[in-house]
């Protein structure tokens, strides 16, 4: 530590989507589950692969572009982080499909840098809060808040 800036150490889970490594604070993650039996929802936003039953609750499955192609309608084909997304009044659980979970790590969020627009695919731009430079390549940090796609007015 250089003493001028306060370190903001967070424990985080790192994971891969489309060969890019991402990190998310551990507190925001409820569980890591095998995901399958996804029910496709016609008319849902493009990034929503469908819905699953998570212990009696019906939650949306968010599949960002570039996630390894798998048939999520089959049994337990994929891996997902169940993430708590704060909404107006309550927290909404969302399953985020990932290719692979890599580590549980600690990182100093005070060292986050702004991202280059070109670096981040548009469907997750709202969720990426910054990038950590590391020897093994950039680590994009995601916050759950931006994960919920805007509701598309189907009839508008």
């Amino acid at each position: 530590m250089n003493g001028t800036e306060h370190a903001q150490m967070h424990s985080m889970v790192t994971f891969l989507i489309d060969e890019q490594e991402y990190g998310m604070r551990t507190e925001a993650i409820r569980s890591i589950i095998p995901v399958g039996n996804v029910t496709y929802v016609p008319g849902a936003p493009a990034s929503v692969a469908g819905v699953i039953n998570l212990r009696g609750d019906i939650i949306p499955v968010v599949e960002l572009e570039g996630t390894r192609a798998r048939d999520l309608s089959d049994e337990n084909e994929g891996l997902a982080l169940v993430v708590e997304v704060p909404d107006e009044a309550e927290h909404i659980a969302v399953a985020l499909v990932v290719d692979e979970v890599t580590h549980v790590d600690r990182a100093d969020f005070a060292k986050l840098e702004d991202t280059d627009e070109l670096m981040v695919a548009r469907d997750r731009a709202a969720a990426v809060i910054g990038v950590l430079s590391r020897e093994e390549g950039p680590l994009l940090i995601l916050e759950p808040t931006g994960l919920l796609p805007e509701e598309e007015e189907v009839g508008a």
């Binding site: 929503v48 039953n53 609750d57 189907v154």
Partner: peptide
Amino acid sequence: KPLRRPIGNIPGISSATIRPDGRVA
């Protein structure tokens, strides 16, 4: 079972149910 954001408001789909095999319909 209610569908919540971001899929709660699709015209023609009012809600969902859970099938005996655990899947959502």
